[in-house]
Amino acid sequence: MNVLGIESSCDETSVAVISDGKLVANLISSQDFHVNYGGVVPELSSRAHLQIVLPLLKDALSESKLTLKDINVICATAGPGLIGALLVGLTFAKGLAYSLQIPFVPVNHIEGHVYSGFLMKDKPEFPFLAVVVSGGHTLLLLVNSFTEIQKLGSTVDDAAGEAFDKVAKMLGLGYPGGPKIQKAAEHGNKEKVTFPVADLADPFNFSFSGLKTSVLRYVQKSFKDNIIPDNERNNIAASFQDAVIRAITRNAERALNNFEIKSLSLVGGVAANQPLRDALTNLAARYNKRIVIPDMQFCGDNAAMITFRGMKLFESGKRFELTYNPFPGIPENHFSI
């Protein structure tokens, strides 16, 4: 079976092909021009998706050494994400599936991340704890199978990736914040400032809004006119990054102590952060659990994970109508399309 998938939820257009269970193409076109605006501009993102999706699909087929007629199922991200961006990939996929008279499978982007560890050689073992950390979401999920996900906790305000972006902006490091903070932190001392980690009534929930405000207050109090010397900027970045990592590892450890969990998987765009990868790897080692962290190409938005998730939905017997609409957010506790 040959499955083709399309991702267009934010600022990456991606097309992937899985042939008989093997990933044979995963092309990603990143819209780097958003850097000029300090964040993703939805209208420009939508325009770029429409321009690039077909050439990218042709290249993915070429790389797969397949033709359109060889494709059996077409998947596309349905949400959450930027609605205008989602509409392009989803509608294109529906049109293509209709013209080829083959099934169309809409995919929840978060579920794509959750199962992205299965794109690796060493795969997660059910039930596993998925630590989903991205620009839009911070979630702790207990994943029991390909059809059952239990939400343990989520952020009550900002996502971790969002906090990285906002703090990077405060520090004048630019966009995107994740890599910029990590790079600055490499030259900083994380012990220099102790930023607080929110302790909420629900032990598995996160809050990064207070942390972000703490950084702002510290900057305003310590530096006149927000002029921050490089070494101080690096120290703040390191201290902030450490606080985020402490929050995530603390809640993940709580989950390990309270649920039967065979393995861990750190997924999402912020899973590219090396100190976070190291911290979760150390946590898993302490509990003698396997940890699966996808390769960098599967951490950011990519169609490989969408294609894999779509394939699993199709294999489980799920079928969808072409009237399926994209969704910008996910309803509370809802993870199955």
Binding site: L54, F92, K94, G95
Partner: peptide, 19 residues
């Protein structure tokens, strides 16, 4: 409408390429 136009074009690109 930018969005309406893109929905039409996205669908048409998929339909036309597939056929």
């Amino acid at each position: 409408s930018f969005t309406g136009l893109r929905i039409g074009y996205s669908a048409v690109k998929g339909l036309a390429f597939g056929s």
